[in-house]
Amino acid sequence: MSLHAVIEVERGGFSLDIDLTVEAGETVAVLGPNGAGKTTLLRALAGLVPIAGRVELDGDVLDDSAVGRHVPTEERRVGIVFQDHVLFPHMTVLENVAFGLKRDRSRVARGWLDRSGLGDKAGVMPGELSGGQAQRVALLRTLVTEPRLLLLDEPLAALDVSVRAEVRRELSRQLAGFTGIRILVTHDPLEAIALADRLVVLEQGKVVQTGLPSEVTARPRSRFVADLAGVNLLRGTGKDDHIELDGGEVLAAPESGEGDVFAVIHPRAVALYLARPEGTPRNVWRARAEDLDLRGERVRVRLSGPVPLVAEVTPSAVRDLRLDAGAEVWVAVKATEISVYPA
């Protein structure tokens, strides 16, 4: 069972243009900023949006604009779970879960609820559930129909942070027992990394990067992914042992190769000094601290200067450096701490 989709959607100035293949049993997380087309992609796969292109699932052609084929949503066996559960408010939890079942509906639905620890909620109306419970019921309602493709549209985004972890665990458990293909739309990198085998990064309607979560975060190919991974992303032209940045600055970095390259610098590799440092680092310049942001045990410092970067230092370093917004500091980056890869 696999999914192959070539999808083009043109709508009011926005265009989605995607070529996506997902293998059986795989969970793919689609990441991207707001307006990147993530939800449109899901709706297109569900058959809720007319497309140009071709969608093939498990050998069945669901859409093929070339021959005018379009299988309606209700015949696709594609499940979709929306951000805020969308449980039918006029039905009990049991009736909601039984909605998509064809026979022996009540008993089967009850069995699913019991196995998920929601058996005591069977007779309850959705309005009386907590957000987390409602989302778990919404997932069950879809899973009982045994879809071949499960589409999850930001399933945790509407939940309180306090229950998100619990529902994520539950979701992860449920997904593990599900044999079809899973596509998860999210803008939360943690959610993506926790639940997905593979990331697909979407920006302005196009796939900009795809791969294992570790690969994607290690080698971001867009500002969005770099921000998600919390690293500095620079772009320039590789000249063997240095990079000419697009801003004109030169950055010493070994094995920079030739041509268009990305350079990633982890914020912890950005060292700050009160006076110009002596010794080996060749990448040294003067910069200004624009603002400081405490993140757990570390402080992130946004720097302006010849190369704008974010540095991560300890609170005691902040004290020693007398760092504050507007403070002038020396910046040093070891050439060996810069990871360079072709753009």
Partner: peptide, 20 residues
């Protein structure tokens, strides 16, 4: 999205209309 959810759960137009 209520109607879309119902369709994705396999309900035909009539069932969507009558039940949702």
């Amino acid at each position: 999205r209520y109607e879309e959810s119902a369709r994705a759960l396999g309900a035909n137009s009539w069932k969507v209309f009558a039940r949702v």
